[in-house]
Design a protein around this nucleic acid. Structure first.
Lengths: 217, 217, 217, 217
DNA sequence: TATGAATGAGGTTTCATTCAT
DNA sequence: AATGAATGAAACCTCATTCAT
């Protein structure tokens, strides 16, 4: 793995401002000028630091995706947990992590929908990141299968698609679900307390049902 | 409901070309000139027909979302089907319909992620469309609960989020899942045969497990 | 040969304004905005017409070089002239033609000095144009050799280099030679009357000496 | 004459790198950043050393043109040579000198074509340099005329224009003449051996013919 | 209905130069 | 002497839209 790039306070500030704007308005719809103004930074500095608007986005992906899996791996290596508990911990981590970087998550959803070029840096970063996630859960499932807790013939990609798709959907459509659930617009705390909490519970339930021995019966 | 607008052959042609381009490159990334060129239509005519680029997009949503639920409602009113079968028919329809209008679906995923203004026409159209879908499944579930086939306390919004999120995710990330499954790029038939078919089966399984009496046990 | 492109009055006007500016300040040093302002044309029109600044330059070359050789060929086909007179007519034409399109000529000198990419459109256009000129004079020289008026072993490329180099040099360094000859700055008529006229006479003399039988003696 | 400025190794290095780039791409097309990078020097140092990009160019001219005529003067003062031999030595020197500083020569051709302001430092430097060259050859020609080797009424400026124009043309259009003569791109040795050598011979021949008594006959 | 021309705003990027250390 | 950061201006180009016919 490459050595993680180091960023100055100012650079990180620019990246965070960019995340906000990209999440809110979209990549193309956000101008570099807007980022500069909101970050209170000279326009030319952004190109000076990142090279181009596109490279700024790539830096954001690189930075956000780096080391995401490391702390997860630590959680999973906790010997005290049995496979079922590990699955629960995994889902807790996944949802919490997506929620805490909500805006970047939204950008990622948009981008993976647009990024069609398999050779693009972003496509590769996302593929790699997801592969890391998959390999972690795979180990747990194999262990659970050995212990006869989980059934055979589990398609991990598809199973991942279910919770990745669901969680991303819910976190990318806050205005929509706020409307449906009559949650005050922009009140993320309430959103989390009511909807995300419920989501967490139900997704766990579903995944456990899905893995359980009798699923096919 | 408003009376559905009538469109000429030419207008429909423009809309279809626009769907292709919007799906492939995104709304902002597609220029009106590109649409005009690909549709072999004079540039100025597009504004003449639709008023503006944004209104063209709105027309597309209006047209694509209109009458979607009607045929579904017919399926569901089939008295010969029991609630479980109805749920299966519903999911079949949902997946098939999303797959057959794959490109519009992709646009919709992108847009609902971007469209933040609750007063925007597109936001309202999507909210309304989803509400119709929900009301249809709600009836089935209530019926299933009466017949003690389904458990109590089912959150339909969340349940919908699960399959809407999953299906949209899978259909909006064709390049990604093609890569993961080693499906030839652009071979949609193979994609459907291998991945979407499996998805259909598993989603049904999951939803049925989720609705079943013992889910909470 | 390709069919010559047709240009509207307005397009020709833009091209002429561009020639003036490119000759005076250079290609890179001239901004499209300056051209637009001097031509009293909307900035975007220039890209609308020509595609880009570079393509504008290419159009200028294409237009200026087209049909240049045709009228020369007519002069040379005049049966009444003997080879020596044809050489003189050739040189008259060459100098007069370079002088009458003085500014374009200057651009061409600059560009051929810069244009290093053998695959560039402009490089190819100039190579082709010069080849046409050469083929015309070659015929005359061969004829003169048959008639024992000119010596054998004449390198046409090098001979061309002599008058092309000299004429271009003189016409591209008007300020310099005006200074040396104390000709009023910008008085092109005087420049032509005194310096170019003399150049014409001497170049003819030199070329004739160079071609003559005794040259090597 | 001003006392020649002294330059450090580092400054000379920068100037040489700048010559390469200016010759290859042009003055405006070369950025100070590129010079800094290629010279492996801090960007700000270039302004620190030379004041500005333009002054860097002026320094190059100053340095390159200084003392050029001195060694020529020494050659010409060789009492053993007769006027005809001196003309030959002059031309040898001129061509050799232009060839050995090929890149600066190319810059000079470009610049004298662009530099229109008679008050500019570069314009003045070039005028002065050329005047020195002229004064040297003038003496030889006057001597030759006294010895009845050369004809009367020789326009030295025009005669200079012929070989300056020709030599500069040939040396500034290497890609073009390489193409015409099928010389491998960038093979300067071959270029010199075949084309420049021939040019040397023919130019001498021409100038001698031009100066000879019978020229007007 | 249809079209080629036209417009003004705004996009990203690059540049030469200077500042602060 | 040397440097990395910073700056403001200006470059080219593209866009959605409208005008005139």
């Amino acid at each position: 793995m490459e050595h993680a790039k180091e960023y100055s306070e100012k650079q990180l500030h620019i990246m965070n401002v960019a995340i906000d704007l990209f999440a809110e308005k979209g990549f193309t719809e956000t101008s570099v000028r807007q980022i500069a103004e909101k970050a209170e930074v000279n326009l030319a500095m952004i190109n000076y630091y990142f090279g181009s608007k596109k490279e700024l986005l790539e830096s954001i992906f690189e930075y956000q995706l780096a080391n995401k899996t490391i702390s997860l791996e630590q959680i999973m290596s906790n010997a005290a947990l049995n496979p079922v508990q590990k699955i629960e911990a995994y889902l807790d981590y996944f949802i919490e992590s997506a929620f805490s970087s909500l805006k970047f998550n939204k950008i990622m959803v948009k981008r993976t929908t647009t990024e069609v070029d398999r050779e693009s840096k972003i496509f590769k970063l996302v593929v790699e990141s997801r592969a890391q996630y998959r390999s972690i859960i795979e180990k747990v499932i194999v262990q659970g299968q050995k212990e006869k807790l989980f059934r055979k013939n589990i398609d991990i990609v598809l199973m991942s698609a279910i919770f990745v798709g669901t969680v991303n959907h819910v976190l990318s459509n806050v205005p929509y679900y706020s409307t449906v659930y009559h949650i005050e617009q922009g009140n993320m705390k309430a959103y989390k307390e009511t909807f995300v909490k419920k989501l967490n519970k139900e997704i766990k339930l579903i995944i456990k049902l899905y893995l359980s021995i009798d699923a096919k019966a």
